[in-house]
Computed example of a mutant assay.
Amino acid sequence: MAIAATESQYVTFSLENECFAVPVEVVREILDHEDPFRIPHGPSYLLGLRDVRGHGVPVIDLRLRLGMSRTEKTPHTRILVIDVPIDGRSLSLGLVADRVFEVTSFRHDAIEAAPDIGIRWPSDYIAGVVRRTEGFVVIVNLAKLFSGTDVRSLGSVAASSLEHA
């Protein structure tokens, strides 16, 4: 079944009791959680590096990046390996999610603008919100979330750590 041009597909996942989504086209794969190789002196949300098909991928605790509590590993914890377009190149990152739900389609006209008040995260990090019967789905603005200087340096941390391994 072809998706109409009025819809886009997203991967939905949970952090704490909230439902989030990222565009399906940025998700390379979904992996079981394994503890990454620790990197000293990184930002608090950088859990370390994980080998993904021969490449060092920085693993991010997305809950910490959004100002939430640290992720507690469970049998449902997954890592979404994503490719984020930043400054004309692609940065591969592993995002820790409490649980991955599904790939789903959202109609473009059902995506509301990010609210400026009443949310726990900076609205710049939110590309939009979709209302569902069971609550809201927050679509993460990956370009804004990972556009800071500290995050851009993660790509070089991964490369230099692999060279010295």
Rank of each mutant, 00 (worst) to 15 (best):
P36C: 10
D116I: 13
D35N: 13
D83P: 02
Y10E: 00
S147R: 12
L47N: 04
L31F: 02
I126C: 01
R120E: 11
P75Q: 08
I126R: 06
P43D: 09
A97V: 03
P23Q: 12
H108A: 07
A165H: 15
R38D: 04
C19D: 06
H76I: 00
L66W: 02
D109V: 14
M68W: 11
L15Y: 08
L31P: 04
L31T: 03
Y125Q: 10
R107K: 14
I111M: 07
D35I: 13
M1R: 03
A113F: 11
H164Q: 13
P23W: 10
I30R: 14
K73A: 01
R107F: 11
S14F: 15
H33V: 05
S105T: 15
M68Q: 09
I3K: 03
D83T: 12
L93R: 07
H164W: 09
G135H: 15
Y45N: 07
D83Y: 08
R78A: 00
S92P: 02
W121K: 10
L47H: 12
L31N: 05
A127I: 06
P43Q: 13
E134C: 02
P75H: 11
V137E: 02
V81M: 09
H108R: 12
K144N: 15
G54Q: 06
R152F: 08
L66G: 00
I82C: 01
P85G: 03
G48Q: 05
V26P: 00
R65Y: 01
V22G: 01
C19L: 10
I30L: 04
T104F: 10
S161H: 14
G42R: 09
G42T: 13
T77D: 00
T133A: 14
V57R: 06
H55A: 15
